[in-house]
Design a binder for these strands. Sequence first.
DNA 1: GCAAAAGTGTTGTGATTACACCCATGT
DNA 2: ACATGGGTGTAATCACAACACTTTTGC
Lengths: 221, 221
Amino acid sequence: MSHPPFAVTVDLVLMTIADGALSALMQRRAEEPFTGYSALPGGFVGVDEGLDDAARRVLTDKAGLAGGDSAWLEQLFTFGDPQRDPRMRIVSVAYFALFPHAVLAEAVLSRPDLRLTTVSNLGEPLAFDHAAIIAAAHGRLKGKLDYSPIAFALLPELFTLRDLQAVHEAISGTKINKPAFRRRMLGTNWIEPTGQRESDTPFRPAELYRKSAHVADWRAD
Amino acid sequence: MSHPPFAVTVDLVLMTIADGALSALMQRRAEEPFTGYSALPGGFVGVDEGLDDAARRVLTDKAGLAGGDSAWLEQLFTFGDPQRDPRMRIVSVAYFALFPHAVLAEAVLSRPDLRLTTVSNLGEPLAFDHAAIIAAAHGRLKGKLDYSPIAFALLPELFTLRDLQAVHEAISGTKINKPAFRRRMLGTNWIEPTGQRESDTPFRPAELYRKSAHVADWRAD
DNA sequence: GCAAAAGTGTTGTGATTACACCCATGT
DNA sequence: ACATGGGTGTAATCACAACACTTTTGC
């Protein structure tokens, strides 16, 4: 009883913006328990493996995401209810990671067991306590949106202010005033104009921005 | 290798304001490793015990805090570096808890292995990675100060606006303008006046306030 | 020229700060 | 009376929202 055995896992909430909505990558389970249910990608932590290392490994192996090194990855919360897994006592350290839409879209196309689901409307019951994990991820993301440059992790390298505003609206669930949003963002020093413009628009093309170099490795919990 | 054995512990950062500074309760270690070092109170999680339950148990057993039921207790972060404990692989779920000064002062008086240390100046090396855990707790506390009624957990039931301002200044490390702070707090609906006044002051006694009833069980991560 | 969205100027409002001042209490 | 901190009024500042407007592109 002095130090009973546990299994420790990581579960990953991989998010992006798809069709204007915050979405998460789900994996269809092939084994018991919860066979056929959608679940978050996850895996057991190795005895000599750090928690962040395990999360990055699951990112590349289980979800087939090459860009695992550069993605925004952040520990979220640890779920340890004794009944959360019917097989044994498992403590799961949940992470969330953010990607541009193209990265997750490609993963979904190449892997039939993966799909994207809308975070605010899951549409089906999930395996284990994964619905609660997703809710926690959404909450954290919403909370950090205003004071951290977290939204850029959901966009490609070049983006317009309209793209950025769409990300903010999808996460916060509110409409934002366009001129106010513009000036607020331009006042943060988080973005810099490239001089380039988008193309193939049936209207005036917007300027393309990129995330400023000095916020590239920004964090803060 | 599919699910290797881990030990899971909880470590607790128990904080209060002592002499105008944010302070944490430390316990002197009697056993190896790190014998004689100061460490955070902590303990192994039972196989059938929830994480929050384990944290509350350590609160009452190891630190002898009767008010464990009512204290503000919140999961902080999970530390799982493979080398963080020389004996074996231990994943530790860190919590922080907040108390009025009198509660921790009494615990320190009754237990010679306990003492209070200033969070911003620990003064000595700590066991394991506990300095990093304390830093994370301080950061979380600072971040939540402005948008959550978390400061009241560090004060007794009745307090003056000066007391509350001292708490904010101790946590944020900045001086705050008095009238501005007053009006901001009175505008939140987090506190209500009692009509009573402090006594035994060599100057004009300030009004005593209490935390409003409807924020008693407030949370949000 | 027209439609559609980019991008800017102007004004108003609410929150917060700074500073000055008055008030109440113990000695 | 006076020292000390409690408490309030007022004006300035800042961030942001609302709204109207001009600009630039494809068709």
